[in-house]
């Protein structure tokens, strides 16, 4: 294979691989920007992959799977919002409990519906949709404009979120809720509603990230399908400084490492493959060192606002 083709293939794979990272990290960022820190990504992605796959398989259409995944992600997001924002429970404890419940439910649902089979049931994977004109461009066309719709969605969503957060009044209010809910509340911003909406929409995005895995990679559900991508997305959120545009840029790095590790394993570079498969996690730990230094974390992240309480720090 000549060098140019190899580079094109690599970049194409990066574009495909970054989707779940972008979607899950933007979902994390959205909830976090109003103060709700979810640690249930891994579980939401698992349950959305399972339920989404089953819906697409039994109802005979990928769209059903996508809708089911958003629904189940939204429900978990709603539970997280209710337990933290309304009942003011510890966000990490609730997040962990939801993580275990959803992870358990993902394999339960699959086992109950499908059972143990020799040949896994398959759904068709997402078709590529070349964009008119743009896909005809040399090099760039192949790399960026011949992909499944989720790739475009991930990019467009990131740009929309950037505009929403930094160029609109609602975005300003949203960010204020995550910095100082007391100040936002006193200016008439509905803190509770903000936290609910961002957490539910955030859960839906994590659901999309989960259902992408069977739809783009495997065509079926397996218990190890997520492989830490949910946890890695939290790291990506910090790496991107809780900003939608930097999260998108950071996702290129996360996806790049994953593709690199996978391809090095296939081409046999002399390093035992186990160490190549460690790469994404080790690289993530390394980039968190500068990531945590420069990330401007929302001031109220991980805490619950109680307007009745007197001392608000």
């Amino acid at each position: 294979m000549d060098a140019q083709l190899q580079v094109i293939t690599f970049l194409r794979l990066v574009m495909i691989t970054l989707v779940p990272y972008v979607l899950a990290a933007q979902g994390t960022m959205l909830g976090g920007r109003t103060g709700v820190f979810s640690v249930a990504q891994e579980g939401i992605m698992l349950v959305a992959a399972s339920v989404g796959f089953l819906a697409a398989y039994y109802l005979g259409g990928l769209l059903y799977g996508v809708l089911a995944a958003m629904l189940v992600g939204g429900i978990v997001g709603l539970l997280l919002a209710y337990f933290t924002t309304t009942l003011k429970m510890d966000q990490f404890v609730i997040g962990l409990a939801l993580f275990f419940a959803t992870a358990g439910f993902s394999s339960l649902a699959y086992k109950v519906a499908i059972g143990v089979t020799l040949i896994p049931p398959l759904i068709p994977t997402l078709p590529d949709v070349p964009l008119p004109v743009l896909s005809q461009l040399p090099l760039v066309g192949d790399i960026f404009f011949r992909h499944n719709v989720f790739v475009y969605l991930a990019i467009v969503l990131s740009l929309v979120l950037y505009v929403l957060l930094y160029r609109t009044g609602i975005g300003l209010e949203l960010r204020a809720v995550g910095e100082s809910p007391l100040a936002a509340d006193s200016l008439g911003v509905n803190v509770t509603l903000m936290r609910y909406v961002t957490t539910v929409v955030g859960g839906m995005l994590m659901g999309l990230a989960g259902v992408y895995l069977p739809m783009a990679y495997t065509g079926t559900f397996t218990e190890d399908i997520v492989r830490g991508r949910g946890w890695l997305s939290i790291a990506l959120t910090f790496f991107g400084g809780w900003n939608p545009h930097f999260i998108l840029l950071g996702a290129f790095f996360f996806a790049g490492v994953e593709v690199l590790a996978f391809r090095a394993q296939v081409t046999n570079v002399g390093i035992p493959y186990q160490f190549l498969l460690m790469l994404p996690y080790l690289a993530t730990i390394l980039v968190m060192i500068p990531g945590f230094r420069w990330a401007r974390v929302p001031a109220f992240l991980g805490r619950n606002y109680d307007r009745e309480k007197r001392a608000q720090v």
């Binding site: 492989r227 946890w231 939290i234 910090f238 460690m278 996690y281 968190m288 060192i289 945590f292």
Partner: peptide
Amino acid sequence: FGINEILSTVLMNFVSFQLIN
């Protein structure tokens, strides 16, 4: 470095899966 321990401890799990293999 002040790195969130939830994240780093979880990521170390995934490293160990490859190590035992």
